[in-house]
Amino acid sequence: MKLGLHISNFTWPEGAPRLGAVLGDVASAADEAGFDRISVMDHLWQIHVIGPPEHDMLEAYTALGYLAAHTRRAKLLTLVTGVVYREPGLLAKAVTTLDVLSGGRAMLGIGAAWNEEESRGLGLPFPPTAERFERLEEALQICRRMFDGDETAYQGRHYQLGRLLNSPLPLSRPHPPILIGGGGEKKTLRLVAQYADACNLFNGPDVEHKLDVLRGHCEAVGRDYDEIEKTALFNFDLGESGERVGETIEGLRELARKGFTVAHGSLRNAWDIKQFELFRNEIMPAAQAL
């Protein structure tokens, strides 16, 4: 099993004046510890499940560019970009830029968006659910074509692009991997089967059913279910002095049993980089054996 570090909280003890330096140290430590990928949320306010909206939050693609300069191996992505936050042409260009400057380590994480409060507060579009999913499918089509170098004009219901020029093209082949976040059975998982290289699900009691639904969508569109990477959100809580390492490894073992190959995990007090030695020495070897 591969591990991903998901950095979702930037309200750290030394505050904004040291946030850049500490974030760079965290990314470097995670990269050296063997994390396969590092992700950030695509939010502009903190989300309520983590803290109040006034807590520190960084814009995602600026942050990922910074992380690219502080890492050598880890893939870089959002979990996940809300489709209505950026026009698809600009999004494809941002991911391509990240891929080129990182040496081919970018992924496109994308979903239908959900944070209406944030969107209304900052004047971002937030159309009804059905339209957001229509826009998601069109954005996936546009990004795939731009990653592939297809410059043909695009005429969709919501997006019209005259020329899909994207120069330089991404370094990743055949394209930066596309991950779709969410477990909606009728729309989201169908889009995974049709367009994505990976899915990301909440590890809830119905997660195995969600994977069965995805398998059915793959059969319907003629897609090989096994070629889609199955990733799940995970909580890395190692305890104050590493006393929960065993519980963490057991949680990863349970994820692997369900069919997941990647755990995207938030780490309590990620700014405390001493924790990454536990990953390097104990958790990574155990995860790689799963």
Rank of each mutant, 00 (worst) to 15 (best):
R173F: 04
A68V: 09
K75R: 15
F133M: 08
G109F: 02
R244E: 11
I283G: 01
E117P: 05
L191W: 01
G182I: 08
R132K: 10
Q160M: 12
L98T: 13
P17Y: 13
E247D: 15
Y159K: 11
M57Q: 14
R72S: 04
R157D: 12
D31A: 09
P174M: 09
F147M: 10
R257G: 11
L179M: 15
G184I: 06
E151T: 14
A74C: 13
L76P: 05
S28G: 14
Q160P: 06
A69L: 10
A74V: 05
D272Y: 10
I178N: 00
L90A: 11
L179T: 02
N200P: 11
E208P: 08
A198T: 01
E116F: 05
A94C: 09
E208R: 15
H158N: 14
R268Y: 10
E219Y: 06
D148W: 02
S172M: 08
K274A: 14
G51H: 02
L278H: 04
E227Q: 15
E14G: 08
G182F: 08
P88H: 03
V83W: 00
P128W: 13
Y225P: 07
A74T: 03
E87V: 12
L136T: 02
Y85A: 00
G103Q: 09
E59A: 15
P170F: 09
R120V: 13
M1A: 13
F260T: 02
T152Y: 08
